[in-house]
Simulated scan of single mutants.
Amino acid sequence: MRLAQLHRPLIFTAAVMVLIAIFAGAGLALDDRILVGVPVWLKPFKFAVSITIYAVTIAWLLSLLDRRQRLGWWLGTVIAAAMLGEMVIIVGQAARGRQSHFNNQTPLDATLFSVMGATIAIAWICTAWLAVLLLIQRLPDRANALAVRFGLLVGLGGMMVGFLMTLPTKAQQDLPEGEQPTIIGAHSVGVEDGGPGLPLVNWSTTGGDLRAGHFIGMHALQALPLLGFLLVLASRRFARLRFDRVRTRIVIVAGSAYGVLTGLLVWQALRGQSIAHPDALTLAALGGLLLATAGGLTWALARPGTVQTPAAPVLSEVH
C-alpha cells in the first residue's frame, strides 16, 4: 500500500508535524531560552516527532479495517484534528516562553491546558474505539492479529499514564487556605519538575518520572506490530517460525512482557524512584520479569506441532 493511499488527514497531520519538528529543531539551535530546566523548543520538538509516528501508525491501523471503514475514517479525522489542535497550543506557548502543560498561572494558560487535556482525551477515546473495531475483526494471520491487538491495548494503557500526570501533587494540595497553585500536576514524583534528567528525554534522575512508563507503553503501538512483521520475515530463514503456533506464542509472551514492563515503570515512578537508580525491589521485579519472559520464549519455541502455516502479514508494504 502506498503512503498516499493511507488516511489523508492523518498523513497531512504527520507532514505538518515533520515541518514543526524542523522548525523546533531550528529553535533549539537559535533560541537559548530555558523553560522548566530544558530548552524552550525541546517539548515542541519531541511532541512533533511523537505525533508524526502516532499519526502514521493510526493511518496504517485504519487501513486494516475491512468493515466500518467510514467510521474508521471519522475516528482518524477526529484524531488528526485533536493532534493539530494540541500542537498549535504547545508551539504557541513555547513561542511565548510559557509552560504548556500543568500551567495554571493565568486564566489563559489554564484554559489552554484544559483544551489540551480535552484533545488528548478525545484522541484516547478514538484510539480505544479503533481498538474495539480491530478486536472484533478477523485478521489474516493470528500472530500478526495478536501483535496489533496487544499493541493497541498496551498503547492505550501507556497513554492513560498521561492522565496521572495531571493530578495535583501533595505540595500543590498543601498550599495555605485560599492560595491557588500556579502549576497543577507534574511529570515527576517526589521531586520538582525541571531537575536533573536523562539526555534528550529528560526523565528525572533524582526522583520518579511518569514519562518513562508513558513513553514505553504508548509506543507499544509500533513495537508489537513491528515484532509481528519481523517474525514473518524471520520465518523465511528459520523453519521453526513458519509454525503459526510458534509465532503466536512469541507474540503472547512479548506482548505480556511489554505490558508488565510498562506497569513496572509506572509503579517505580509512583514510588518516587528514578529510572536511573532502581532499588533492590525494582531490580528483583525486573529480574522476575526477565526470567518469566525467558521461560515463556522457551515454551513458545518448543513442540510447535506438525503443520506449518504460511505467514500472512497484515502489515502492508508502505512506499
Score class of each variant (00 low, 15 high):
residue 292 A to I: 14
residue 215 F to G: 03
residue 205 T to H: 12
residue 81 A to H: 08
residue 87 M to V: 11
residue 35 L to S: 10
residue 66 D to H: 12
residue 223 A to M: 13
residue 259 G to E: 03
residue 302 A to P: 02
residue 104 N to C: 03
residue 87 M to I: 13
residue 216 I to Y: 15
residue 161 V to A: 08
residue 295 G to A: 06
residue 182 T to E: 07
residue 219 H to V: 01
residue 235 S to H: 08
residue 151 G to L: 04
residue 184 I to F: 08
residue 61 L to T: 00
residue 237 R to G: 11
residue 159 M to Q: 09
residue 126 C to Y: 11
residue 246 V to K: 00
residue 62 L to D: 03
residue 272 G to M: 01
residue 161 V to S: 03
residue 101 H to C: 04
residue 54 Y to M: 06
residue 92 G to D: 06
residue 41 W to Q: 00
residue 137 Q to T: 02
residue 26 A to S: 13
residue 104 N to F: 09
residue 247 R to P: 08
residue 85 G to A: 10
residue 278 P to D: 02
residue 133 L to W: 06
residue 240 R to G: 08
residue 189 V to I: 14
residue 52 T to R: 01
residue 237 R to S: 15
residue 64 L to M: 11
residue 28 L to N: 04
residue 69 Q to T: 14
residue 72 G to Y: 02
residue 262 T to S: 09
residue 56 V to M: 04
residue 76 G to P: 06
residue 74 W to P: 01
residue 85 G to D: 09
residue 305 G to L: 09
residue 247 R to W: 09
residue 79 I to F: 14
residue 91 V to L: 02
residue 294 A to Y: 13
residue 239 A to S: 10
residue 216 I to L: 13
residue 41 W to T: 01
residue 308 Q to D: 11
residue 17 M to K: 02
residue 127 T to C: 03
residue 232 V to N: 08
residue 219 H to M: 04
residue 55 A to Y: 06
residue 220 A to S: 06
residue 156 L to Y: 12
residue 190 G to T: 00
residue 271 R to L: 09
residue 15 A to S: 14
residue 150 F to A: 01
residue 207 G to V: 01
residue 181 P to F: 06
residue 234 A to G: 05
residue 212 A to W: 11
residue 41 W to M: 00
residue 316 S to I: 10
residue 59 A to T: 05
residue 309 T to Q: 11
residue 227 L to K: 04
residue 165 M to G: 03
residue 35 L to D: 12
residue 264 L to R: 05
residue 114 S to F: 09
residue 170 K to I: 15
residue 28 L to S: 05
residue 114 S to L: 05
residue 281 L to Y: 12
residue 294 A to F: 13
residue 48 A to T: 09
residue 95 A to K: 15
residue 168 P to C: 10
residue 90 I to K: 01
residue 98 R to N: 13
residue 2 R to F: 12
residue 122 I to W: 07
residue 92 G to C: 05
residue 105 Q to I: 12
residue 178 G to F: 00
residue 155 G to V: 01
residue 188 S to H: 12
residue 143 A to M: 03
residue 121 A to P: 14
residue 166 T to H: 05
residue 313 P to N: 08
residue 1 M to F: 14
residue 285 A to I: 15
residue 287 G to E: 06
residue 204 S to H: 14
residue 8 R to A: 03
residue 271 R to N: 11
residue 303 R to M: 07
residue 119 T to Q: 07
residue 78 V to E: 15
residue 279 D to Y: 09
residue 86 E to D: 13
residue 73 W to N: 06
residue 309 T to K: 01
